[in-house]
Amino acid sequence: MSIVTPREMVGRIGFYVLVGLVTAFFALPMLWLVATPFDDQPGLALSVPDPTLGNFSELLDNRLALPSLLNSILLAAGTALLVVVFAATAAYALSRVRIPGRDIMLYLLLLLSSIVTGTAAMVPIFLLMFELGLIDSRVGVVLVLSGGLLPAAIFILKDFMDSVPKSYEESARVFGASSFQILRDVVVPVIRPGLATIAVWTIVNVWGNFLVPFILLRDADKQPAAVLMRTFYTEGGSPNLALISTFSLLFSIPVIAMYLFVNRRYGFRFYGGIKS
């Protein structure tokens, strides 16, 4: 045990108080999210719930609530599939083929895709989708979202691809494996944590995206959950906290469950490298 001066002691106490306050600041909304759906009298304040499941049955009465979750899943799964497949193949090619200016190009893509966000490009994107006849189509939403996420996904996956030693592929080639067999049997399994990370990251991005599906989808039956939530008002015009809190909880659970599952199964990493 080291000797603690009073001055250090005060500093330490102050530090922990600060940490406690910050933690509480972030924890309160979470607690609200968990408690309010079960509250008979849902409000904006956090209170010990008067337990009921009535909010859930009210939510089930909403014709669009559960289908909208399914819509979210469709959009997220479709986008994740596109992003993983195209990012993996593009990253593989970029990692293995020498093109002049490759790294500059990757940086530019990443930079542009993060500066020119969906919001800024929404008008041209809308016009483009209109010309292509993809307004009010889930395919259109998936394409737009994929386009926005691909540059960063390629950038991250290229790092994973770079970390797969060439000798793995050469060894397989000497044994007579085709390019497809090499990709399937060697490269993909080795970078599986990278693919899992990209898939989850894509799903989370799509799951919470409001603007793109809001603008591109007309039909209420195709709305994903994030868009539907804006319609939960009472007849008097004030927010229907019972529906909003209950739906928010249902909206969060799939993503959290997926995160836990993938993390357990593959582990998240944002960098390449072979664990030995």
Binding site: P165, S167, E170, F175, G176, V186, V190, S276
Partner: peptide
């Protein structure tokens, strides 16, 4: 001929064992 048709086997400097496969799977991969 491509390497796979030359009927040879190569051992690399870093051995190039596939990290996600067991020893048995590594040996039987060819």
């Amino acid at each position: 001929l491509p390497p796979g048709k030359r009927e040879l086997a190569m051992v690399f400097q870093d051995y190039a064992l596939f990290p996600h496969m067991t020893v048995a799977d590594n040996i039987s991969y060819p």
